[in-house]
Design a binder for these strands. Structure first.
Lengths: 135, 135
DNA sequence: GTAATTGCAAACTGTTTGCATAAAA
DNA sequence: TTTTATGCAAACAGTTTGCAATTAC
């Protein structure tokens, strides 16, 4: 994905801050929250503010560059993988991993049962990851 | 369920406030949040504080009287139905309904795939309810 | 040059906490 | 009488917002 193009297509300006945030989240499988992104950028971009991270992520979510997860935590996490999939969080070390679940089947099931027009679905597990089980 | 007994069994005192909160949530299918419970109690128990609602719900969750839902909203909602099941929220009117989903099957699937020891699972849909579709 | 973006600080929301008073056991 | 719970206000976390200065285009 060419983030420069995608921003321009949607009428947003291309700024160093936006490119820097994209660099952090692109292909990042750790599902970071705003604070984590901010801290990762601190050494390289000391002037970057947390508010800018939030504003950038809001735009990225709107234009389909990331999806926002709620992992039964206080803060939101961001995922560069925007296709619907489930997540699991380790309650010991707080890592978050992807889980393949047939989200379309779940949506269909919910639609049949409730007569809602179903738009979104979120599936989140909690548990203890393999590494933390060994400890 | 005899809330008086359950509270005593777990070493908690039985207070008018706790009984009043229980009255509001018992068999309540609207999945209220703390604010809604508080407002519902205002007329009858004007001295009841929001902090007491929160403290009470925390105890109720701990002793298995309610479960806490995250419906992709800012606030938590509470459900007297403590068996694992999914929820769907109407993004127009914010009502929340139950959805039957085989949560055990999902947990098993996640366990097989991730090698986590899976403890919890949350499934939440968003959409537009039948009533709001008609409007 | 013009409009959008940044970074700061202040505001805001939902929730939690500390503590003096009140009530349960 | 001892221990716990209440209600208030203040604190708290994560997030959002207003705005003057700055930057993209």
């Amino acid at each position: 994905m060419n983030i420069t193009e995608v921003l321009r297509e949607h009428g947003y300006k291309v700024t160093p801050q936006r490119l820097a945030v994209y660099e952090v989240i692109d292909q990042n499988k750790t599902h970071p929250n705003a604070e984590a992104i901010y801290k990762e950028l601190q050494p390289r971009y000391p002037s970057m503010s947390l508010a800018t991270v939030y504003k950038t992520m809001e735009i990225f979510a709107k234009i389909g560059v990331v999806q926002i997860l709620q992992c039964e935590e206080e803060s939101h996490r961001y995922d560069f993988n925007v296709s619907p999939h489930a997540h699991i969080r380790c309650t010991i070390c707080n890592r978050v991993d992807d889980v393949n679940v047939d989200m379309e089947a779940l949506k269909q099931q919910a639609a049949d049962e409730t007569k809602y027009k179903v738009n979104g679905v979120g599936v989140s597990f909690t548990g203890v990851c393999a590494a933390c089980q060994k400890k």
